[in-house]
Computed example of a mutant assay.
Amino acid sequence: MQLLSLPSALALALVLGLAPSWALAGDGHDHGEAPAAAAGPAIPRFAATSDLFELVGVLDGQKLALYLDHAGDNSPVKEAQLEIDIAGTRVPVTRVADGEFQAALAAPLAEGVSPVTATVVAGNDTDLLAGEIDVHAAAQAHAEPTGRRNALVAGALAAVLAALALAWGLRRGRAARAQRLGGAA
Rank of each mutant, 00 (worst) to 15 (best):
8 S>M: 11
110 A>I: 04
55 L>S: 08
113 V>F: 05
69 D>K: 10
114 S>P: 00
169 G>L: 14
88 G>C: 07
75 S>P: 10
78 K>M: 07
148 R>N: 01
126 T>D: 09
92 P>G: 14
160 V>D: 00
139 A>D: 08
100 E>H: 13
166 L>G: 11
83 E>M: 11
133 I>V: 02
170 L>R: 15
42 A>R: 10
86 I>T: 01
15 V>R: 01
109 L>H: 05
115 P>Q: 07
146 T>P: 10
70 H>S: 09
40 G>C: 02
26 G>R: 12
8 S>E: 07
70 H>I: 06
36 A>S: 04
1 M>R: 15
77 V>G: 05
41 P>S: 12
94 T>P: 11
57 G>D: 00
6 L>T: 06
140 Q>E: 12
122 A>G: 06
18 L>H: 04
13 A>S: 08
161 L>H: 00
43 I>D: 01
38 A>Y: 07
118 A>M: 04
122 A>W: 05
76 P>F: 02
51 D>M: 15
18 L>K: 03
181 L>D: 09
86 I>D: 06
39 A>E: 04
19 A>R: 10
113 V>K: 14
47 A>N: 05
44 P>I: 03
138 A>W: 00
35 P>T: 00
69 D>M: 08
149 R>L: 10
169 G>S: 14
144 E>C: 09
52 L>S: 15
98 D>N: 12
7 P>D: 03
115 P>G: 00
101 F>R: 05
2 Q>T: 15
67 Y>M: 09
176 A>I: 04
89 T>E: 02
174 R>K: 11
140 Q>W: 09
175 A>Y: 00
63 K>Y: 00
142 H>Y: 12
132 E>F: 11
58 V>M: 07
35 P>C: 03
114 S>F: 01
94 T>Q: 15
182 G>V: 05
169 G>H: 08
78 K>D: 07
158 A>I: 05
115 P>S: 07
123 G>V: 06
20 P>I: 11
39 A>Y: 05
179 Q>E: 09
75 S>K: 15
140 Q>P: 06
168 W>K: 09
69 D>E: 09
76 P>I: 02
115 P>I: 01
32 G>Y: 05
65 A>D: 08
161 L>N: 01
107 A>I: 11
44 P>C: 03
9 A>N: 04
44 P>K: 01
92 P>T: 14
104 A>M: 13
121 V>L: 03
88 G>L: 01
58 V>S: 07
89 T>K: 01
8 S>Q: 12
93 V>H: 09
185 A>G: 14
90 R>G: 13
37 A>F: 13
103 A>R: 13
85 D>W: 00
17 G>W: 02
92 P>M: 13
45 R>C: 10
48 A>Y: 09
38 A>F: 12
107 A>P: 08
67 Y>A: 13
183 G>I: 15
97 A>G: 00
169 G>N: 09
46 F>R: 04
160 V>H: 03
28 G>I: 07
159 A>S: 14
32 G>F: 10
91 V>Y: 03
176 A>T: 06
86 I>W: 04
4 L>D: 07
100 E>L: 14
4 L>T: 08
152 L>Y: 13
165 A>C: 04
110 A>K: 10
65 A>S: 12
177 R>H: 02
88 G>M: 06
73 D>W: 12
76 P>D: 01
161 L>C: 04
171 R>K: 13
